[in-house]
């Protein structure tokens, strides 16, 4: 089957599925979160996959999105749709500024620097209580069901809005991949010196990707805040909750591919939800351990991710049948 047929089939399924689910039930909640984290993985994929800059600090941008729109809503009654754009702009600016000190860093050093940046923001969010609510976090004021204020009692509208965001980010990813920027990112990823010598402005290429990725991540932060109604610094600026999860989802599925983060999210998020439901009372942190082990396993078996693993498996089956 051609890739676009897969895409169309998945999209149709995603549009139809809620009509079979209880709009206030648990399954649609899990599904909505899955779509949200698939989108997060895809936004991460723009720097982590296309440029191979493994960021462990995407929570910074996610948190900026969540806090900006919520603070603007609480204090100025500004619609989260506008707050979302403000958050995206702030996150883009943050990514731009962060690019300068991290530009020359490769591998672990880049990962650690981005992680440190998001930790700084988490600490700020925990301490600046007058604005951020401190460690207790913020609640999104609920008035009534309203598209303009992006709030609904039922999960279904969030589901569709977040599905829309996922589609948007996937389209952005595809457009970048096929554009001059995508080619240049590949060059930077594979050989930055050679890329420079044949005319690629590697600095600019990396900054552009980082800024786009950060802005999209912030949009998702706003949607998360509106969807969950309540968040604290740990939930949106958390290393494990957001940064590591975004990276794992993309890497597990297949970094640098369109389908990778989608596959990763559909494996990880439901598993995590059910594992937490089943285990958390008895063994806090066990699910995180399981994910750590899964990640190590995938990196040892097939570092290019589940997508490659599965498609190689299918190819082998076909060969076996023919031969």
């Amino acid at each position: 089957m051609k890739p676009w047929i897969w895409g169309a089939a998945a999209l149709i399924a995603a549009v139809v599925v809620p009509s079979f689910l209880d709009p206030a039930g648990y399954p649609i909640r899990v599904l909505t979160l899955t779509l949200l984290f698939a989108a997060l993985g895809q936004a991460w994929n723009i720097v982590g996959g296309l440029a191979n800059q493994i960021s462990l600090g995407h929570a910074a941008f996610f948190g900026i999105g969540a806090y900006t729109s919520t603070i603007l809503l609480i204090h100025f009654n500004l619609s989260p749709w506008i707050g979302m754009l403000a958050g995206a702009a702030l996150a883009a600016l943050a990514a731009y500024l962060l690019s300068f000190p991290t530009m020359k860093l490769r591998g672990h050093y880049f990962a650690l620097a981005t992680l440190a940046f998001s930790e700084v923001l988490r600490v700020v969010a925990s301490s600046w209580t007058s604005v951020t609510g401190g460690p207790a976090g913020l609640s999104v004021p609920y008035a009534a069901d309203s598209l303009a204020l992006l709030q609904f009692k039922s999960t279904t509208p969030y589901y569709y809005i977040i599905l829309g965001a996922l589609v948007l980010i996937c389209v952005v990813f595809l457009v970048i991949q096929k554009s001059a920027l995508g080619y240049r990112l590949r060059a930077v990823k594979e050989n930055p010196d050679a890329a420079e010598v044949i005319g690629v402005d590697t600095t600019r290429v990396k900054i552009t990707a980082a800024v786009i990725s950060a802005a999209l991540t912030a949009l998702l932060g706003t949607l998360y805040a509106q969807f969950t109604y309540f968040f604290d610094p740990e939930a949106v600026f958390g290393i494990v909750a957001i940064s590591v999860r975004a990276a794992i989802i993309a890497i597990l599925g297949g970094a640098g591919t369109l389908a990778g983060p989608l596959i990763g999210a559909f494996v990880i998020v439901p598993l995590e939800e059910f594992a937490n439901a089943a285990l958390s009372s008895r063994a806090a942190g066990l699910s995180q351990l399981v994910f750590g082990l899964m990640l190590i396993a995938i990196i040892l078996v097939e570092p290019r991710g589940l997508l490659v693993l599965v498609s190689n498996g299918i190819a082998r089956l076909r060969k076996g049948r023919k031969g």
């Binding site: 080619y183 590949r186 050989n191 010196d193 050679a194 890329a195 010598v197 005319g199």
Partner: peptide
């Protein structure tokens, strides 16, 4: 510009894409 003694191609990309990236310096895809 120069070529690299030990060859510094973009190894995972196709031959065409390798060369195309050079051409992007002056024109669109």
């Amino acid at each position: 510009t120069k070529t690299f003694q030990n060859v510094a191609l973009f190894m995972e990309a196709t031959v065409l894409d390798n060369v195309l990236i050079g051409a992007l310096l002056r024109e669109g895809v």
